[in-house]
Amino acid sequence: MSTVILLIHVMIALAMVGVILLQRSEGGALGIGGGGGAGGGGFMTGRGAGNALTKTTAILAACFFVTSLTLSILATQQRGDTPSILPSGSGGEGGLNPLQIPGTPAPKTSDTPAAPQAPQSQ
Rank of each mutant, 00 (worst) to 15 (best):
M1H: 09
I5W: 03
I8W: 09
I8S: 11
H9P: 00
H9S: 11
M11Q: 03
I12L: 11
A13P: 01
L14K: 04
L14S: 08
L14A: 15
A15M: 06
M16H: 07
V17A: 14
V17H: 06
V17G: 10
G18A: 08
V19G: 00
L21W: 10
Q23V: 05
G28I: 02
A29K: 07
L30Y: 14
G31K: 04
G34W: 00
G36K: 08
A38V: 14
G39T: 03
G39S: 04
G40K: 04
G40C: 01
G41V: 00
F43E: 10
F43I: 11
M44G: 00
M44Y: 02
M44K: 08
R47S: 15
G48E: 07
A49Q: 07
G50Y: 01
N51R: 13
N51F: 09
A52F: 15
T56F: 03
T56P: 00
T57G: 08
T57L: 11
I59Q: 00
A61H: 03
C63H: 07
C63M: 13
F64Q: 11
F65S: 13
T70Y: 05
T70S: 11
I73A: 07
I73P: 01
I73R: 08
L74R: 09
L74D: 05
A75C: 13
A75R: 12
T76Y: 15
Q77K: 15
Q77D: 07
Q78S: 15
R79F: 10
G80V: 01
D81V: 06
D81A: 07
P83G: 03
S84H: 07
P87G: 05
P87D: 03
S90K: 14
S90A: 13
G91H: 06
G92Q: 07
E93D: 14
G94T: 06
G94E: 12
G94P: 00
P98I: 11
I101C: 06
G103R: 12
G103D: 10
P105V: 03
P105D: 13
P107F: 08
T109A: 14
S110P: 00
S110V: 08
D111W: 13
D111P: 00
T112C: 02
T112L: 14
P113G: 08
A114D: 09
P116L: 06
P116A: 15
Q117V: 15
A118D: 08
A118K: 13
P119E: 12
P119V: 08
P119A: 13
